[in-house]
Computed example of a mutant assay.
Amino acid sequence: MLIELVKVAKFPWSPWLAQIRTPFGGTAVRWCGDQAAEPGEYHVEWTVDEDIAWGRNAKPAADSGPGVRPGGHCVVLRGQLNLTVDGAAVLDLDGTQILLDLAAPLPEGVAGTWVELFLEREKIALYPFQL
């Protein structure tokens, strides 16, 4: 996914965080690239290092369409949730696939719907790459 990096910063209580913008929102998440990265556009891969538990950190989205926004001490990702053949889940965030680990099977009928994930910003990482 192509994102706009606004800045990279480090606070004493957190890992390196990137303030980012996308066409559908912005937030701050863990940055796994060059700590001296200049503002600008970067292609990134998203990873989520937190198990998804329906009703705890995942719920139906009130709106359809992708979204990224801050939510207090967490980040809210809105996308379409799909299942893989091996029982994992994938969040489709505007065409970018983010692999998710499930704490328990999803309720019936959730696959293919728009959902919101509420995740600690340190548990979402961006890995920049060159095309």
Results as ranks from 00 to 15, higher is better:
36 A>D: 13
128 P>T: 13
114 W>Q: 06
108 E>Q: 08
33 G>S: 01
114 W>G: 05
75 V>W: 09
42 Y>W: 04
31 W>Y: 04
74 C>Y: 13
127 Y>F: 15
73 H>V: 04
41 E>S: 06
50 E>Y: 03
126 L>A: 07
41 E>P: 00
49 D>C: 01
95 G>M: 12
101 D>T: 14
94 D>W: 13
103 A>M: 01
38 E>R: 13
100 L>N: 05
102 L>N: 07
83 L>R: 15
114 W>L: 04
52 I>E: 05
68 V>K: 02
50 E>D: 13
69 R>W: 14
93 L>A: 06
35 Q>D: 03
27 T>R: 02
62 A>Y: 03
120 E>I: 06
40 G>K: 03
62 A>D: 15
57 N>F: 09
91 L>C: 09
85 V>L: 14
68 V>I: 15
60 P>T: 11
29 V>D: 03
38 E>K: 12
110 V>D: 04
126 L>Q: 07
98 I>Q: 01
54 W>Y: 15
66 P>E: 10
90 V>Y: 05
49 D>N: 14
101 D>P: 00
104 A>F: 04
119 L>D: 08
81 L>M: 11
84 T>F: 10
64 S>C: 07
90 V>H: 06
94 D>T: 03
43 H>G: 03
84 T>V: 08
123 K>H: 14
39 P>R: 09
52 I>H: 05
90 V>S: 06
77 L>E: 10
99 L>D: 14
70 P>Y: 11
62 A>C: 01
122 E>K: 11
31 W>S: 01
36 A>T: 02
38 E>P: 00
113 T>E: 12
39 P>S: 06
109 G>W: 07
